[in-house]
């Protein structure tokens, strides 16, 4: 059996897809509630970034199947993310200097 066969066999079920969809909707509602809540920005900003990271990972790992696919695909994606973050850090550093 090829890796491709194994990957398709390990995709989430329809029920799991729907569960992820519900979680994404609930987390988005919490994010919007945080926006309107009378809470200091020092609290809301880290909380919003944390919730965004959860949504991001749920979509990437389950909807995009990175949790089940070959590690090479994860590396391709992470490489792009790292380069983007390095670009961000460099530009911010140059701006602040």
């Amino acid at each position: 059996m090829s890796d491709l066969d194994q990957e398709q066999e390990h995709h989430p079920t329809v029920g799991q897809y729907v569960e992820i969809g519900v979680i994404l909707a609930v987390v988005t509602a919490v994010e919007v509630a945080l926006f309107y809540a009378d809470i200091p920005r020092q609290v809301t900003i880290p909380a919003l970034l944390f919730l965004t990271a959860i949504k991001f990972l749920l979509v990437v790992m389950w909807f995009m199947h990175l949790r089940y696919d070959h590690r090479l695909l994860t590396r391709l994606f992470v490489a792009g993310m790292i380069i983007a973050l390095v670009l961000f850090a460099v530009v911010v550093a140059i701006t602040l200097l």
Partner: peptide, 28 residues
């Protein structure tokens, strides 16, 4: 050689490069 189709590998390479594309715009 990794058992992944070329099309899928190509799509993930595109997505990786698009991370840099949008990362640049978000940074700006």
């Amino acid at each position: 050689n990794f058992g992944v189709s070329n099309e899928k590998m190509g799509m993930w390479a595109l997505i990786g490069s698009e991370c840099l594309f949008f990362g640049a715009f978000i940074t700006t």
